[in-house]
Structures are given as C-alpha cells and as structure tokens.
Design a protein around this nucleic acid. Structure first.
Lengths: 334, 334
DNA sequence: TTGAAAGCGCTAACAG
DNA sequence: CTGTTAGCGCTTTCAA
C-alpha cells in the first residue's frame, strides 16, 4: 500500500502538493500536477479513507436505520439508498432497529463514534430529543415517513392521504357499496393519514360506521385476523382498503379461507406497491409509493447536506399512483 | 467531544494509561484505573473509532456483498449477519453487486481503502483471482454458497444435494409418478447440486427423460416460463421440484393460469424456505435452509478470523429441513 | 505555486 | 505499574 508520502517522493514534490491534486483544491501548476498524477498511477496509489476521516474530512459513510430489512417494504428502499450512495462514492451501513428506541439510541451512539457522515432514518421511534441531539452533534439527518419534527431535519414521504382517497374511490368506482378499512399503528403518521383519507371519503355514505375500521398492525397476520373480525361484524362488506400491502396479503389469505371470492365478492386493495403484490393470486391492486425513489432521494438529500454543510430542513412529498390489478377487477354494476 | 487527552489530564495520568484501561491490556493499578474510569464517565468520553482505525487497530466494520437485497432470499441472511455483528460491536456495510464482477471489484477496492475488517461474500461472481488478491491483502473473507475455492477461505452453505433428494422423495411419497425439475443457473454450485440430487433420485425410473429438466434462472418469471414450456412437453407431469422458492412462486402462477390445480393435479415444492412460501395460495412446500443462521454463522466465523488473526479455511455445511405444506398435500394413491 | 509542519485521536513500543 | 514518544496517512494553515 503506497502512501501519499511515497507519491510525493516519487513525484519530487511535497505531500501537500499531492494532497492538493488529490482534492482538486488550492493552486497547483499543470506540470507538477501531471508529475503527481503519473506517480499516483505508477504506484497505484489509493488514498486511505480512514486517515482522511481522521484528518477532519468526511468518512464517506452514511447509515440507514430501519426497523427490519426482513420486512418486504424495506429492501427496495435500501436498494435505492445504496445505489445513490454508491454512485457518489459513499458507503452505507445497515441498521435494524426493530423499532426499539433503545436499539436506535445505541446505534446512533456507535455511529457517532465512527464519525458517520449522516443518517437516514426510516424507523419510527425516533424521539424529538434524539433529533435535537443529533442536531447538536451536527450530524446530518434525513427521515422517511415521519411528521416534520418541528422542522429540524428534512423529511421524505409520499402522499398518504391522497393515496388513501385514491384507493377508496377506486373501490367505489368498481362498484363497492360497503367499504372497510384495515389500518396500521396510529403512532405512524403514514397509517394515520391513510385512515384519515379513508374516513373522509366514506363518512358521508349511509352505510358508514366506525366499526368498519379494524386494526391490522401493518402486518400479514394482522391483516388476516382483521378480516376474520371484520366479516363477523359486517358480512356484507364488499370492498376492503388495507393500509399497507402486507396486511392486504394477510387479508387475501383470510378471505380465501372464508370462501369469499376476490374480487367477485370482495374487492381488495393495499398500499405501498411492494413487489409481493404481483405474486399473489389474484394479484393485488395497490396504491404504489415510489419506494426505490424515496431511498434514492433520501440519500441524495443527505449527501447534499453533508457536502454543502447547510442543513436546510425541507419536506419532500412524493406522488403515489393507483395500480389496478385483479383484486379489484370487476364491473361497476350499481 | 472529549478526547483521550482530556481524560488523561482530568485523571492526572498519561494518555497511555488511559489507553490501557480502555483496551484492558497492560498493567494498570486498580486505583489509577478507578480514577481513569471516573474521568471517563465524568467527561462522557467515547473513544474515536476512526482514530483507532488509523492507529492500526481494526475499524469494527465488515461488509456484506450480495447480489441484490431486493431478492427475497437475502434480507433474512442480511439480518442474521447484522444481528451477529451488532452483538459484537461490529457494523455492517451493505453492498449490492447485481452479480456483476466489475461492481464487486470496485466495491472491494473501496472497502479496502476504508480499512474494512473483513468481507462476507454472498455474491456469485467472485473469481479465484479476487480471492487470492484479498488473501494477499490480508483481508479476511467468508463466502456463502460457493464451492470451496481451493481452500482459500471459509465457506458456508447448506446441504443442497441432500435437500434436493429430500424434495424429490417427498414428491414420490405423496404419489407423484412423473416429476420434473426447474433448475437454476448452472454456474451456481447450489443450483448444480440441486439438479444433481434430482437427477440421481429419478434417473432409474422408467418415466425419466432429460426433457423433464427445464431452466428457470432462479427467478419468478423464469419459473413461470419454465412451467409453460414444461407442460407443453409433458402434459402428464404430476410433480415439480423447483430449484428455489422464487421459481416455485412463478410456477404456481403459471399452473394457476393453465387451470392446473395444485396439489391435486400437480404437486409443487421449492427450495430455500423464504417467507414468501407462506404467503401464496396454496402455501408452498419447500426444503428450508437455515438462512438467518447462515448469516449469523458467516458473521461469527468472520469476526473470529478477524480477532484471532488466524484464517483457517473451513467448510460449514448446514442442514436443511423438509417443510411440507399444502402445495404437496395429497394422498399417495399409487 | 509550493513546502514545512502542526495536528486529527489513538495505540504501542520503549524506557523508566 | 506508568509516562514519553513516535507514528498511523492525510489535510491544512502559514510562510516562503
């Protein structure tokens, strides 16, 4: 491993000069630059990132903290983050928090010690105080899918409220006359907005009643149980809007078990647009978020913050799109 | 941010002493140790990992190179790696190689510059020369699911051959009398072994013919297409063993489209044991590898190599288990 | 334009 | 047992 010293020696200049051509800053004579470049190539010199980090520069590493990479929603996002990071020479550290505040804190602690350049937070339990702490530690932060925490950091999310309306209207369009909603944890802004979108769209219908809303915890088994409960309460439901795709998958299973046909008896639609929705039978309609792009954007925003040093909190709200598939394919007959 | 110097000053000792208590090495008087510890706590001192790395110690960072985190097989493994790493204070860098040799090389290059402590390789295109290069660079390596490359590094995989036999025998047990196989890329040792297991189990049956083996590229669409082709060739097939679960999912879709009932008309079994197999309708039988554990083991072996410094190449072959679900649930009637 | 030199924070001989 | 000191490899004033 050649060092900057070796290069300097071979090129017959000082390390400072080599550093200058490396970082493209400060004045350096064209000719000397050439000499240096040749030396670099000759020695196959590669600057040592750790030393750079110590000398006050950045480490070129960002962290992605998410609840659980095993949840089918996250791999795509992680991939977006990684691709964008990689494209700019950054490296991504993966952290699974299981949505446990304590794990998150210990990760943050660890990351700070490692001089991580910034963090993308896609986990849910980040507290106000954590944000402030990171802020005071001056470590850039971008969060996904959370409420803008008093404008302390940039937030990226998509149109959850509008998407929910889109989903419910779609169900109405295909002829549903009694639509239920399986919702996620109300601590999550996403789940809340989707519930709100549902409520506001259906509350004026005569058939509407609060017991059409059942919790499903954003999980497959939650969706499964929710449907069982729901059809007990309302055997005449003919449309279900699930707050996320995972629950929709569970709902589908439950409906199958109950002998309810989808979409003939009950039309079903989810939210998120994860790949899984194309694998079920029937394929699931959904409101797709640009998950990959959200990851890419998060990484880009973070890297910009890191490089410019200006942390201007902004809110990015991405568009969602209705993806109509078999699970809602039926004629409006009303 | 307090530094080791601050601690030394406050405790009235030298930095060397502080370093000693920090790293629990060298002799240190109990009382001095206490003073130091108190100073550390008082200043909330946290050693700077980057400086440590530069000073020759390890960086406490390992990399996981895999083809694509978006492939449902990998999140679980990644989770295993991360959990094990985290438990020992290591941090994991995620790299998606898309199985492109060039991307892998550029990652390795980058990781080396960052003084990564070791690499777990779950990608497929790692060449012999790469392994040797890493070896000469003295960077520990553990590979997953590959042939033991001339014993240059530790290898972790599971019983692919035995698992394949298990799958095929299971199909025979439930009464199948003409069993096909959809296989993965033959460059992959896993795919090859599974194909071999199939062949050796069925080759003596009168119905056996090579055209019962169709490629499916380890992908959902590959499995889908393979089934279409297969049933054209052999309409009387009544059992299909897919080389992985992803292809089984695709196969299931194709069978459904063709109006072939599973398991009544055709029994279907996959390989891997990814979560997806529980979400389809009917649920898929599979030969489950301990995916999470493979990740954990890989991380542990790697960390041990890093810490002891001895790189003794070993081969770990984990057991697989037959998971019989609906997709093969039928009486043997022969 | 270039070089000398002072760190960045920590570890590890080596000497006491 | 403890302190001094020389790096690890790079960046960045400050002079020249």
């Amino acid at each position: 491993m050649a060092t900057i010293r070796d290069v300097a020696r071979l090129a017959g200049v000082s390390v400072a000069t080599v550093s200058r051509v490396l970082n493209q800053n400060g004045y350096v004579n064209k000719e000397t630059e050439q000499k240096v470049i040749r030396a670099i190539e000759q020695l196959r010199y590669e600057p040592n990132a750790v030393a750079r980090g110590l000398a006050g520069k950045q480490t070129g590493t960002i962290a992605l903290i998410l609840p659980d990479i095993t949840n089918p929603f996250f791999p795509e996002m992680a991939r977006g983050v990684e691709d964008a990071a990689q494209a700019q020479g950054y490296t991504v550290i993966l952290c699974n928090s299981d949505d446990q505040g304590q794990k998150e804190k210990s990760y943050i602690e660890m990351l700070r010690k490692k001089y991580i350049d910034g963090i993308i937070f896609a986990s849910n339990t980040l507290g106000q105080e954590d944000v402030e702490q990171m802020r005071s530690n001056n470590i850039p932060l971008v969060v996904l899918d959370r409420a803008p925490t008093r404008q302390l950091c940039s937030v990226i999310r998509s149109q959850n409220y509008e998407g929910a309306k889109l989903a419910v209207r779609h169900l109405l369009d295909v002829g549903c006359r009694k639509i239920a909603h399986i919702y996620g944890p109300q601590e999550l802004i996403t789940a809340k907005k989707r519930l709100l979108g549902y409520e506001e769209t259906v509350m004026h219908f005569p058939w509407y009643t609060p017991s059409l809303m059942v919790p499903g915890h954003f999980r497959v088994d939650g969706g499964f149980d929710a449907v069982k409960e729901l059809l007990k309460r309302h055997p005449d439901v003919d449309g279900i809007f699930c707050g996320n795709d995972l629950m929709a998958v569970g709902a589908l299973k439950a409906l199958y078990q109950l002998g309810v046909r989808v979409p003939e008896d009950v039309a079903l639609i989810g939210f998120d647009g994860i790949g899984l929705t194309e694998l079920t039978q029937p394929e699931l309609s959904t409101v797709a978020q640009p998950i990959y792009e959200m990851g890419v954007l998060a990484a880009k925003v973070l890297m910009e913050t890191i490089e410019t040093g200006v942390m201007e909190p902004r809110l990015y709200e991405l568009e969602v799109t209705l993806v109509a598939r078999e699970s809602t394919k039926r004629r409006a007959e009303a």
